[in-house]
Amino acid sequence: MINWKDFLTTYRGWRRRWFYPLISVAVALSLCLSAPLPGRAIELLPLLFQGAQILKISNISDRDEVRLGKQMNQQLQRQEVRIYRNSSINSYVEQIGRRLAANSDRRNIPYTFQVVEDDAVNAFATMGGYVYINTGLLKIADNEAEVASVIAHEMGHIEGKHALNQLRQSAIASGVATLTGVDQNKLVGLGVELVLKRPRSRKDEYDADTRGLRTLTKTGYAPSAMVSFMKKLLNNSSVPTVLSTHPGTSDRILSLQRQIQASPNYGNYGLDSSAYQANIRVLKR
């Protein structure tokens, strides 16, 4: 017997994944076929090839996504960020990340957690499982659960493939996909630019919040830490924050509070401020 619920879920996922790329190919094909002269059709053939390249970007495999994320990570370290080299801090953040990754919706990809030496209160993620958290954010957090909430949120972007979808849209607009194929260097450079300079959409932020809260709760961390950290940054106008480029922070806080209230059975791990300060004491020197 056909399980129509599962069938409809699969169909909707397939439709979202293929609809826009197929539209690109169809438009290019229709332009070619509708051209009144053979010479004009030849001129428009590159559009069809570009549509095929866009289709390739849209349906990138997990392995290729990880490979692309690795290349972006290498470029980031060469040009944009300086990785903090203190082994105890890196090990601590890695430990938090690994705990969360065990409850991720995408456990099939290898997550990489790195600390960036920067006093700006910031965190970000690239595709393929790469998560970055600034030393400035670690300093302002009150406890481990707050740090975990930020990491879980960034993992939510990876789980939702937000960077990958944003890259696909930008690649179409910027012409990265050409007659000669997809320019890998330009694709990597575009991905780095998107991560550092262009904020996520409101929809993506809400989605990352929901995914992050679910991972945080499943791991046993206190979900209230996600709210407390957002409130702290929202109310401290003197602090340059990760939330400064994230739209609708007040609304997001309300949404998170409603989700927490709807699921009262959760853990309270990670709220020990003294233990947290002991783990990051090297940053306070």
Rank of each mutant, 00 (worst) to 15 (best):
V93R: 14
V93G: 14
V93D: 06
V93W: 04
E94F: 10
E94P: 02
Q95I: 12
Q95H: 14
I96Q: 13
I96F: 15
I96R: 14
I96W: 07
G97V: 04
G97F: 01
G97S: 10
R98W: 04
R98M: 12
R98T: 07
R98F: 07
R98Y: 07
R98K: 15
R99Q: 13
L100F: 12
A101I: 14
A101S: 15
A102F: 04
A102W: 02
A102Q: 11
A102N: 06
N103G: 08
N103F: 15
S104T: 10
S104A: 15
S104P: 04
S104D: 09
S104Y: 08
D105P: 00
D105N: 11
D105M: 08
D105H: 11
R106E: 03
R106M: 07
R106V: 05
R106I: 04
R107Y: 00
R107T: 13
R107V: 08
N108G: 06
N108V: 03
N108Y: 05
N108C: 04
I109W: 01
I109E: 01
I109Q: 01
I109L: 06
P110D: 04
Y111I: 01
T112H: 03
T112K: 04
T112L: 04
T112C: 04
F113M: 00
F113R: 01
F113E: 00
F113V: 00
F113G: 00
Q114T: 11
Q114K: 11
V115L: 07
V115W: 09
V115M: 08
V116A: 05
V116K: 05
V116I: 15
V116L: 03
V116D: 05
V116P: 03
E117T: 01
E117M: 02
E117N: 10
E117G: 02
E117D: 13
D118V: 06
D119V: 03
D119I: 06
A120C: 05
A120W: 02
A120Q: 12
A120M: 12
V121I: 14
V121T: 09
V121Y: 04
V121Q: 07
V121W: 03
N122C: 07
N122P: 05
N122Y: 07
A123N: 09
A123R: 11
A123F: 09
F124C: 10
F124E: 11
F124D: 09
F124A: 08
